[in-house]
Amino acid sequence: MVSKSPTNPLVLAGQALFYGLFAVIIGYFSTSPDFTHIEPGRSLIKLSFSTQGEPVGECRERTPEELAKLAPNMRTARICPRERSPIKVNIALNGEPLFEGVAQPSGLSKDGASTIYKRFEVPAGEHLISVKMNDNVRIPDFNHVREEKMTLKPAQILVIDLRKDRGGIFFE
């Protein structure tokens, strides 16, 4: 049995060994081993938007008879369908399909924003990026289109957004 006297060299050595081991365990796993988030020579494309699609139907003016039936404080002349269109997305990289999907409008009445977030790792370098979106069910084809040749640096993040206030499909 080891004497537990704090002056016993064996006790001191044992304690020092323990504290050293404790420090090594804390210190090592605090920063190691390294984690490779993106492989070298790869870039990241993020598709992210949160926006409302167009109403599913045309707006129209109420007739005088319809207005008369409403309470005075409810008599707005123009009426639009509440439901919004889902947003269809199609992305191609160098002519090859990268993503195809639909962002449904949120809310019980489907009148909220359509949101999407996707991330794609792609090789760094020059790419032809083609993005098409449709946010209006009344239009059969894609009503937002953007195609651009871009050079992505290693680890660069390219964000594809849909900002109607900035001209539609937006690369950043």
Binding site: I26, G27, S30, D34, H37, I38, P40, A155
Partner: peptide
């Protein structure tokens, strides 16, 4: 304290929203 002196905690580079860090010294705890 000894650990703090021997291996001080340091930061990675400043966050850049347009770039991802390929390799990270993450705190596994």
């Amino acid at each position: 304290i000894v650990l703090a002196l021997v291996k001080p905690t340091v930061s990675h580079g400043k966050a850049d929203l347009s770039m991802a860090s390929a390799t990270l010294h993450i705190d596994w705890y």
